[in-house]
Design a protein around this nucleic acid. Structure first.
Length: 539
RNA sequence: GUCCCUGUACCUCAGUUGGAUAGAGGGUUCGCCUCCUAAGCGAAACGUCGCACGUUCGAAUCGUGUCAGGGACGCCA
């Protein structure tokens, strides 16, 4: 069993015996930074002394007198009433066996039977994915990996806006380029897409069908369809190269079929009213500061309307929770959608938005704006080529999503300790190398010969992995994983420097240290996998 | 004007949901390879946690006010 959890249960039990019922979640275990404060500490005596009507130090003494000391070396009361726990070595050492036995499942949470739909990227299929999408992809995908690992059922979903006016502009732009290829007079639409990719798509369509589009009844409809397909194909390829896949692609066009929008309006009729020829939804009855237009006076629906249908559809597919990763400019949109969900009787919490803040690129100390190749905004493909997938993913998730991110491109390609990606990967490669060289020595999975401070510090950190995963999942915070990875790599490097692992004259110690190496290697790899970064065996 | 986010070392950011002497990386300075990967380790310097009250045993963390920066507020998506 998890070291911390069993400790929490012991504390709960002790409190129960002195007359206070607590749940395990209410107990906070801290990892002491100062070794003289023990391995773990709790503030529970301070926190609940008032409820017991005693002073904190007395409560601490009482708790200790009722504490099950199995696995605990000694306990101290410190300061105003902290309880410090000094664990027996063997209880820490048990984590080594646990990690090696569970291997690639170490840190995995129990099945929660809780279905979460995570929608991310959802870029319009009208061009390449740019930086904003890239960070959304890295964070969204990492959140999914972490949630799955923590035991949730996760569906990764991409919403394709394939019905709006921007798709019309795309089709018109492709048609213009198509006519250009055929040597016919053409005119690029003002709101069109003027990029190189549109020319490529026109070329491909010409290769597929020759000049047949000219004789079609409705060539625009064809170009819409094929254009979206081809743009989407490129997006999928870029995402695949970035290590991101989706379970479900939902199409706005499909959502609009079968009068679904009209039915939805009928369903919401209690909250719909007309004003100056437009149709509005009374979102201000809920969380919004004003009502929102759902159908313009010219009869067209605003984007908001199919979005409502789409999210109601998601809920009808049986999810307990919807998570949507959006750019920070969509901030005003959240309460609008929550309001619509509430009209359907859902709690507002089921619709949860993770806002992604802007990324600023720094190169050679200066802000860096444009892509080398196209002169336009930096694309996901540019990043994969210039910086590489591992570094890009690591950098994108290493800060809280809600914060602005400075992406130092010079640092990201640097192969040194300054670069956090290589720092972590190097730790993994080093461990692999040692394990390879000591492969003839049988591992001591009881890790019975670990005494040094650096060994114990490493062990302690390894034992907290599952807690970190669970926390990162609840908070939708992949950066907590990168923080964990960094700390782990640091401890590994310290241990490696202080402790000679392979020592043919001292095989007992070597066997224990190799087991510790194996456990560390597994944990680093599992953690890196959670953010989609590779764990190389050699560097 | 209304609402949201941010304010911690020279720079970029953590800070375990209110805990013990506020941390890490970059940058700067110094030391460490005859030995498992020096893509590494160790040490030094760097702080009014924007500011002021309040809540309590205890505040970077919670509340109120205030200052500064960014963003959102369309019959756009």
């Amino acid at each position: 069993m998890e070291l911390e959890l069993s400790l929490k249960e012991k504390i709960v039990k002790a409190f129960m015996e002195i007359g206070l019922t607590l749940s395990v979640d209410e107990i906070i275990i801290e990892h002491s930074k100062d070794p003289s404060h023990g391995d773990f500490a709790t503030n529970a005596a301070l926190k609940y002394s008032k409820q017991l009507g005693k002073n904190p130090r007395d409560v601490a003494a009482l708790v200790i007198s009722h504490l099950d000391m199995d696995g605990i070396e000694k306990v101290e009361i410190a300061g105003p009433g902290f309880i410090n726990f000094f664990m027996k070595n063997d209880s820490l050492q048990k984590t080594v066996r646990k990690i090696i036995e569970e291997d690639s499942n170490y840190g995995r949470g129990e099945k929660k039977n809780f279905k979460i739909n995570v929608e991310f990227v959802s870029a319009n299929p009208t061009g390449d994915l740019h930086v904003g999408h890239a960070r959304g992809a890295a964070i969204g995908d990492s959140i999914c990996r972490i949630l799955e690992y923590a035991g949730y059922d996760v569906t990764r979903e991409y919403y394709i806006n394939d019905a709006g006016s921007q798709i019309l502009h795309l089709a018109e732009s492709i048609l213009a380029r198509y006519r250009e290829i055929l040597g016919l007079p053409f005119e690029l639409p003002e709101d069109g897409y003027h990029g190189e990719d549109v020319i490529q798509i026109a070329k491909q369509i010409y290769e597929e069908i020759g000049d047949k589009a000219l004789s079609m009844d409705d060539p625009i409809e064809y170009f819409k369809l094929r254009g979206v397909e081809l743009e989407l194909e490129k997006i999928k390829n870029d995402l695949k190269a970035f290590g991101v896949h989706f379970d479900v692609f939902s199409s706005e066009k499909k959502i609009r079929e079968n009068n679904a929008i009209e039915k939805e309006i009928e369903c919401l009729h209690n909250y719909v009213y007309e004003d100056e020829g437009a149709l509005l939804l009374k979102t201000s009855d809920f969380l919004d500061d004003k009502d929102r237009v759902i159908r313009k006076s010219n009869g067209e629906y605003t984007y908001y309307m199919p979005d409502i249908v789409y999210h109601v559809d998601k809920m009808s597919r049986g999810f307990d929770q919807l998570v949507v990763v959006l750019g920070a400019d969509h901030h005003g949109y959240i309460n609008r959608m929550k309001s619509a969900m509430m009209m359907h009787g859902y709690k507002p919490e089921v619709y949860e938005v993770e806002l992604i803040q802007m990324v600023r690129f720094i190169k050679d100390g200066k802000e860096y704006k444009a892509s080398k190749r196209t002169g336009d905004a930096i694309t996901l493909r540019d990043l994969c080529e210039e910086v590489g997938v591992d570094a890009t993913r690591y950098f994108f998730v290493m800060r809280a999503a809600s914060g602005h991110l400075d992406f130092d491109m010079s640092l990201a390609v640097e192969q040194s300790s300054s670069n956090p990606v290589y720092y972590a990967q190097y730790a993994h490669a080093r461990l692999c190398s040692v394990l390879e060289q000591g492969k003839d020595i049988p591992l001591d999975i009881n890790a019975s010969h670990l005494e040094k401070e650096s060994e114990k510090a490493l062990l302690k950190h390894l034992s907290t992995f599952a807690n970190v995963v669970s926390d990162a999942a609840k908070e939708r915070a992949p950066y907590k994983i990168t923080n964990y990875i960094h700390d782990l790599a640091e401890l590994v490097h310290s241990f490696y420097t202080e402790c000679r692992v392979i020592d043919r004259d001292n095989l007992d110690v070597s066997a224990s240290r190799l087991a510790l190496c194996k456990a560390s290697q597994i944990t680093i790899k599992n953690a890196l996998t959670l953010i989609g970064v590779s764990a190389p065996e050699r560097m």
